[in-house]
Design a protein around this nucleic acid. Structure first.
Lengths: 359, 359
DNA sequence: CCACAGAAGTGGATCGATCACATTTTAATG
DNA sequence: CATTAAAATGTGATCGATCCACTTCTGTGG
């Protein structure tokens, strides 16, 4: 043992990392078996006679052998690796990725995150390269991509926190909670609303806007319009700044927490108090929302489920099994905090037909 | 649901382009040259006679050929890929990664992000596997790792936003701005301070705490103590809640923006107004800080430089060139917003020796 | 003791690229 | 036009694993 250590130490000092990794043949020679036997050992340790297995086991340990995965995947045409391609940007879906990574890991896959600068066509190009390179067994694409080719040779799942994944969940397209929010605010007495929308190039941004408009219509409420934002805090500020003084809005539904925070700041600048004069709802349950003043009502998103579901769908495609049903449908839920309250009494007067409906 | 299933099935099974990806030999045959010539074309298009080049070019295009990178890297023992290993957790350094990815890209490398659940030894194990697998040319490790082996066979750079990278920058270890903050607050008239520290298992958390204590001492100021937090918003709330009523603290230096936000919330709960009664400084320049009420004074961190520098250092190791000097030293800067102001006059009275110093 | 089935082990082909070296073609020169 | 160096191209080996088709063990029943 001390000898092995000494050798290792010297190798590290005199020739740092110059020692080539040992191959399956060297293991075989040391164990006194053929390379095929070692290969069998690697794939199924029980396929060998116990006596043989011990010899191989010893040699593997003595040489600190690790299979060259490049060589392996060249022969097997499988890499046991998945890639997830996403756009660079301010929103890094860390929790989804952590869950995705763990899920992949449990299934014996490594998850590789590839972030691509550039637009949909840059991502598409990267995806095509990746698919044909033989380096991954499947690809998960977040954000929209602009693919020309139909067949990549490996499964591609377009699944995302913001996009198509939600589309399969039903008509409300992952924005169902917007309806809940409005119904809740309505039950508090609010009648005039404003929506600060997210980037309309995101499906989720479009969906939330659509559901907002539908729900306002369905419940016979009023909307002073939709401010087309870009998920930023500034868009929230701007949305409020742009309102006329006598607009009568008492509740704002923002597409995300950051925009909601901007709305609260914009309101303060105009001398409107949240929630006394204006109720604000966000979406994301980002941690800072709990500590904002006032704390932010929001929609808690089960990011872990999103990540898990995405990987499960990709694995299903790879193994040609039917897609599992996603679990996220039930988990998003409203969180009520300080930023929402009943509207001021004066608002009912200002709001059209406020009185009669109050009956 | 049935639709989703159908799509998945079709994509995986009855894939239209059932053909296997074309190889260099097929390209060669179509172009009427040898496979070596095609290989040459791939490496340097100008090494060929124009006439030949055109033939190969045509064949490549016709077959939509893309080299099998697995086979290539098997022969060359290079993958042109870098891995960055980080711990799963709430802090996902998205902007650093984006910059790192772009930098790697420009140097002809792909950057692969590997997030590992588990502690330092789990990460170390993953790093060893990765290094020996032949799949990457170099590894960047974020967060602390617990490596036994000295020699991995490929370069490893332990560079991080939170840790050792900053250590090479000098004695102040990347927390120099803490001194600046305190000096600034001192110049406004503050004399009694509180530090809400970050997780002490992070080098940056330890450094900020150390520099805080050193600076308080050096300037002859007072500290009511250090609250050992964990980067969370709640730790900020708790730090304030734990203060005695008559502590006389007028300025809080938090280790991160989220904790600072918690401090502001905790102050509000006790009826202290920020910044009138209490000044608060954060660190990170997270976007929500700009929209908080009051907006948060903080330290802007050049995350892009951090990412770039890390990759540059790794590339230098790989190419055996001297390490470039990092550029981040000068870029972190203080951002003054609404959460800092001179202390209330009463504070000077409450503070020990306040009167005599006021003269 | 032999035949024989099934398990265990072996040698060599193979994946798709690059590389070293051999060979052919081209261009320059006297 | 012959000579020759340089440039362009071709041939076959190679990387390190798995897989295929054999061969060699091992144990059992007649």
């Amino acid at each position: 043992m001390s000898r092995a250590r000494g050798i290792g130490y010297r190798a590290a000092v005199t020739e740092p990392g110059d020692k080539r990794a040992s191959t399956i043949h060297e293991v075989a020679r040391l164990a006194g078996v053929s390379h095929t036997t070692v290969s069998r050992y690697l794939q199924d340790k029980n396929a060998l006679k116990p006596q043989t297995r011990i010899k191989v086991e010893y040699a593997v340990k003595a040489l600190d052998y690790r299979p060259n995965l490049v060589a392996r995947s060249m022969r097997t045409r499988r890499s046991n690796r998945l890639a997830i391609v996403l756009a660079t940007g301010p929103h890094f879906p860390g929790r989804q990725l952590a869950a995705a990574s763990e899920t992949a890991h449990q299934a014996g896959y490594q998850l590789e995150i590839v972030s691509v600068e550039g637009g949909p066509k840059a991502r598409a190009a990267r995806i095509e390269d990746l698919a044909r390179s033989g380096q991954v067994d499947g690809i998960l694409a977040i954000s929209s991509i602009d693919l020309k080719t139909k067949s990549l040779g490996i499964p591609l799942v377009q699944s995302e926190s913001y996009d198509e994944r939600l589309h399969v969940l039903g008509k409300l397209a992952g924005a169902a909670e917007i309806a809940e929010i409005i119904e809740y605010l309505c039950s508090l007495g609010h009648r005039r609303f404003l929506h600060v929308a997210g980037d309309q190039s995101f499906t989720s941004g479009r969906n939330r806007k659509r559901v907002y408009l539908e729900t306002i219509e369905r419940l016979g409420l009023e909307s002073v319009g939709v401010y087309d934002g870009d998920w930023s805090g500034q868009s929230g500020v701007d949305a409020i700044t742009a309102l006329p003084e006598d607009c009568g809005v008492t509740a704002v539904v923002a597409a995300c927490d950051l925009a909601a925070l901007g709305v609260m700041r914009g309101a303060r600048a105009r001398g409107w108090s949240v929630p006394r004069d204006l109720s604000v709802f966000g979406w994301d349950d980002d941690e800072y929302g709990r500590f904002a003043l006032p704390s932010l009502s929001t929609v808690a998103v089960d990011r872990e489920s999103q990540g898990r579901d995405a990987i499960h769908r990709l694995l299903a495609e790879i193994h040609c099994t039917p897609a599992p049903e996603p679990s996220t449908r039930t988990v998003n839920r409203l969180i009520h905090r300080e930023s929402t309250a009943p509207p001021p009494l004066s608002a009912d007067v200002t709001g059209a037909d406020g009185r009669s409906e109050a009956q």
